[in-house]
Nucleic acid binder design. Structure first.
Length: 512
RNA sequence: GGCGGGGUAGCUCAGUUGGUUAGAGCGCGGGACUCAUAAGCCCGAGGUCAGUGGUUCGAUCCCACUUCCCGCUACCA
């Protein structure tokens, strides 16, 4: 039986350039996607851009560009980001694509036919830059213009006809759904927030706009465009060829296993999205995970504070795998985390250079001097050898459960722990003193090579480039990198050739 | 205001279904070694586990109150 897994990142609004938050959502999703592939799942991994709305329309007008042309440029920077971050996404969806427009309009018609959408009127203070409505008491006047007292951005009074989705009808059905699916929203603290929000009562949701035109037209009324969430969220099924629910992609991959998102868009994914789907008689996704934010030091990154760490600059300066590793290992997953150059440098030096890099270096170099780059033959495992190797082999299911519960920090720390033990093993066994005991010496070197192989496979989802570089010294190909070979304590063929290895991670001199 | 989460070593965080000496990494001090990117290994210093009171033979872990931080939400208007 085929094992299928569908994971998504949010689709990103391309009105600014990609920032660390985008990079983080994408990288953690990629780690999970890659892990599931190691475990021989067919993985569909979706990312993309959300391109409609007044903000984009106005920005395009200012530049005198056709909005679609404008979006082509913006979307490309996010497509490029996927490449820069070495994402293994299998698709990249844009909300301006025909497949998506068709999908959204179809979902709309179904909701309309099921009497879930009605025409009424909306009024309120609207901020274009925040894309949010504010109530009267959230507005103040400054220098003769009205601004939001929350965000400080300019607001305008909007009064217009709008279609509404009958969200209020879904309160109890959603609560029942949450109860029956206790792990639908993770982490638990986010789940609590959603629950108390829904229990507080749901109002019908405005799902169309007349005030601008850059969007997907309401099928039955060309004066309206479909408003943001009903448009954007639907991307997850558009990419599976919805409304054709009989095709293999949809059949294999929906409902999605995991929507990975930032905590700021949790409500839309955990309340509106399942309500839309239930209302259309479609199954909701299996899980929504709202991860934390990456702060610069202990502050939110912002232009005014000048503390923005651009992911592209970081990758350029420190290398992609260093950034990926840092975000996985150093951020307690689910909580907010922070990144600074100092912490990143310290992480690179301790974990990647001294611990992992140096382990590879010392073992390969020892092998070269004593075995001329051949895997030792004539070995005999003793207790301490098996203890080290089985630390990985015996814990495959535990590792699977870490990933399936999005316990990414625990997964990362398990690997670090293996590295410490491997270094300690090599130290304690003192192979440089065992040259007269040939079988023992063979075994120590063999075990050391094996543990490097195993750990490098575990690291593959996190630092794919470096992992492949290390596994290449054993002449392993992609097909050898999976959870079947990882269990094997004698995967390496005696007397086979291995390759020399260069410096994996250069130490960073703090005086630079 | 309501609800929720949290305050554990200099820093980042684990943990304890209540039970003799509370853990890891980084940083710091010392030691032995030499295969290695002056890396790795060993030892050590450092914590009244936010405060007060209670339950208990016994609380960092349970309860109450206080205080500080964060999130969600509401409203005073």
């Amino acid at each position: 039986m085929d094992k299928n897994f569908f994971i998504t990142t949010p689709i990103y609004y391309p009105s600014g350039k990609p920032h660390m938050g985008h990079a983080y959502s994408s990288i953690v999703s990629d780690v999970i996607a890659r892990f599931k592939r190691l475990d021989r799942y067919n993985v569909e991994f979706l990312t993309g851009t959300d391109e409609h709305g007044l903000k984009i329309q106005r920005a395009a007008e200012e530049k005198g560009l056709d909005p679609k042309k404008f979006c082509d440029e913006l979307s490309k920077t996010f497509r490029d980001l996927s490449k820069t971050l070495n994402l293994s996404n299998t698709d990249f969806i844009r909300t301006t694509e025909d497949r998506h427009i068709k999908s959204v309009q179809n979902l709309w018609k179904i909701l309309e036919n099921k009497n879930q959408i009605y025409l009424s009127k909306y009024s309120g203070w609207y901020s274009v830059s925040d894309e949010a409505f504010y109530s009267d008491n959230e507005i103040k006047e400054e220098n003769g213009i009205n601004i939001s007292s929350i965000s400080g951005s300019k607001v305008e009074w909007v009064e217009e006809e709008s279609y509404f989705f009958k969200l209020s009808e879904w309160e109890n059905k959603l609560l029942k759904f949450y109860e029956e699916n206790p792990k639908f929203i993770l982490p638990d603290t986010r789940r609590n927030e959603v629950l108390s929000f829904v229990k507080g009562g749901l109002k019908d949701l405005s799902v169309s706009r007349k005030s601008f035109s850059w969007g997907i037209k309401v099928p039955s009324n060309k004066d309206h465009v479909i408003y943001v969430w009903l448009d954007a969220l639907t991307n997850y099924i558009s990419a599976l060829n919805y409304p054709d629910t009989k095709n293999n992609k949809y059949k294999n991959y929906w409902p999605a296993d995991l929507h990975m998102i930032g905590k700021d868009i949790l409500r839309f994914h955990a309340v509106y999205w399942p309500a839309f789907l239930l209302a259309a008689d479609l199954p909701p996704p299996k899980r929504v995970y709202g991860h934390g934010w990456i702060l610069s030091g202990d502050e939110k990154m912002s232009k005014s504070k000048g503390n923005i760490l651009d992911p592209l600059e970081i990758v350029d300066k420190y290398g992609l795998d260093s950034l990926r590793f840092y975000l996985l290992k150093e951020v307690s997953f689910g909580n907010d985390g922070s990144i600074t150059q100092e912490k990143l440098e310290s992480c690179i030096n301790s974990d990647l250079a001294n611990n992992y890099g140096n382990l590879c270096q010392r073992v390969i170099s020892f092998n070269e001097k004593n075995y001329n780059l051949l895997v030792p033959d004539n070995i005999n495992f003793e207790k301490e050898d098996l203890k080290l190797l089985n630390k990985v082999s015996d814990n495959i299911n535990t590792l699977r459960s870490y990933i399936d519960n999005q316990e990414l920090s625990i997964y990362s720390n398990f690997i670090i722990d293996c590295l410490f033990e491997a270094n300690k093993y090599f130290n304690d066994q003192e192979p440089w003193k065992k040259k007269s005991d040939v079988v023992r010496l063979n075994t120590i070197v063999y075990v050391s090579l094996e543990i490097i192989r195993k750990v490098s496979i575990l690291l593959n989802p996190i630092i794919p480039d470096t992992s492949l570089k290390v596994l290449d010294i054993f002449n392993l190909k992609q097909k050898d990198i999976n959870f079947d070979t990882i269990k094997d304590n004698k995967f390496l063929k005696p007397n086979s050739n291995i390759k020399k290895i260069g410096i994996l991670f250069k130490k960073i001199d703090k005086n630079d």
